[in-house]
Design a protein around this nucleic acid. Sequence first.
DNA 1: ACCGGTCTCTCCAACGTTGCATCGGCGCTT
DNA 2: AAGCGCCGATGCAACGTTGGAGAGACCGGT
Lengths: 344, 344
Amino acid sequence: MGPTMFDVARVAGVSVKTVSNVINHYPHVRPGTRDRVNKAIEQLDYRPNLSARGLRSGRTGVIGLTVPSLRENYFAELADAVIRAAEKHGLGVMVEQTSGQREAELRAVSSSRPRFLDGLLFSPVSLGQEDAAALAVDGPLVLLGERIFGGPTDHVTMHNMSSAQAAVEHLLEVGRRRIALIGADPREGDEANSSNLRLRGYLRALEQADIAVDPVLIRPTAMSHWNRAGGATAAHRMIEEGVDFDAVFALSDTLGLGVLRALGEEGRRVPDDVAVIGFDNIDESQYSVPSLTTVDTGRDEIAAIAVDRLIERINEKGERRPPETFKPAFRIVRRESTGFTEAD
Amino acid sequence: MGPTMFDVARVAGVSVKTVSNVINHYPHVRPGTRDRVNKAIEQLDYRPNLSARGLRSGRTGVIGLTVPSLRENYFAELADAVIRAAEKHGLGVMVEQTSGQREAELRAVSSSRPRFLDGLLFSPVSLGQEDAAALAVDGPLVLLGERIFGGPTDHVTMHNMSSAQAAVEHLLEVGRRRIALIGADPREGDEANSSNLRLRGYLRALEQADIAVDPVLIRPTAMSHWNRAGGATAAHRMIEEGVDFDAVFALSDTLGLGVLRALGEEGRRVPDDVAVIGFDNIDESQYSVPSLTTVDTGRDEIAAIAVDRLIERINEKGERRPPETFKPAFRIVRRESTGFTEAD
DNA sequence: ACCGGTCTCTCCAACGTTGCATCGGCGCTT
DNA sequence: AAGCGCCGATGCAACGTTGGAGAGACCGGT
């Protein structure tokens, strides 16, 4: 066990409380005293014991980030952004994975999670609107994603509908008319999830361009198959069925990368025969062959906002600000898969 | 603030310590008492305060994982594996990123890191053999990767040399003779890092096949450019220089994916004109066009071993086992980029 | 019936830190 | 010169938990 405040106090010739005051930047400490204490801290390589601090003050300086899986590039990059944002505020990040399982997601927000996180950033994929109540408990919580709206917590999401609309408009601009959508929600209903919101943007873009919607172009893919394999399968099947299309709007980049692969295997040239746009702007899309045009949803900003809101909630005393929803700006990143060569 | 042991004790009609005993599976508690306590715990939704436990027992149940960046697929997948392995033992994982910077790496193992992690898994890229001493401090530590050998800690690494040799032998088996190596260390010396160890495997394979080494085929790439862009650049340059080659051994999958892209752009067919093998077996390599043959280095096993060793160190009392090095088995995963269609 | 040992549970103290109360001294106002 | 308020520092208690010691009940062997 390392040195404690007591040791620092002894070396600096002050009381333990004064050491605490210096560390916490309490203003009424004479510069000379402060220096002596800091020198002693350095000399002993003293570091505060976060357990003790957490016990006494109720703060540990650690927040949680709960995502489906770091193997999905989007979430790995989100985690990277969150860790960077948290670090700026001196917070550590404990990462938990749910594999997208309902069980695990419920566990993450409620019981059995030991008490020691100052707050939680939570990106559910299985919990839905009907579980909004489950989020009412358990300390500062900021929600990421679009599974649950109007819940009791702050919520950082993205301009799903308008950015999807812009994506489709981009395909229209490059002259496409038979635009397939890959990644539609295979379930009934119009629950406000990523799929359905982006679908609405697609429909709206077509409507405004006076293009009739052909249901055969709307290709369902369960969220659990929102990966390269799922995208490839969907594209293969569409071709197998003889569907006529000259563009694909993939509802995620990984779906889009799978589509690119399948189109290559089927001998369709991208973008000549088929233009493809993805969604998320993961690092990888920049390096695929061809590179993938996509929607940048402002991931870094999402992370920064989420961390800021969470910190605000953590510091909240009695008066509680009502829950808010935040949506950073998006932009279309034009790349080879829609006929451009330079990004940005 | 939630219920405490005191509340549970009151409801169950026992002492606080008995509650503690039940929670910690102390054997001498009557089943009836245990049930009453468990019922009270459930009823109150009691969860232990890890700060208090950590303060009293010196354990927090959280380990650290320090990697360069989660944006690199290899490390994202490693983090995934570590988190899963740790979860099996009831441990949480706090992830820190260093961006591969020496400063940040030194900070991670030594001062300023607040005391509350039970132990640390550390994967340095900038620290080298000369920094081995810096690792002597600061509690349980298990090293990942091949930057530092013979240090004062346990070390989980991989069969770099023999698996690289096997990779090159695979290329020889499919009839290639002019095998380029992309990702060599541009610096002088033969420090035992990933690059140089894999280079040795390459050299040994050629030697055993009685093929002369052509230095022009050994292409340097700084570790900081071990990504798709770096691989693409290296391949482009090699073609620009008019180098004759019929295979590429990329020292990482991301380098290999960049090579695939560049070869496509240059009109070289893979595997017909050039066979390519990567290293790491990241998820993505399975879905590239063409899919990338690679070396699976046993990432899950690395994570499991590392967590197990770390836990063992954490539980170590006085007698210290001398530091050990572990290397899980590897295997070659044959895919399209060397002329195979089925993985496994 | 007695004794030693085991089982079940309890009491007390301690982990390292910070919130609160307080205290002497100094400078400024009246 | 007395009073007031601020500055700089201190001491004490408390956060929720667990280690250790120990008390009483119970058991089996003699």
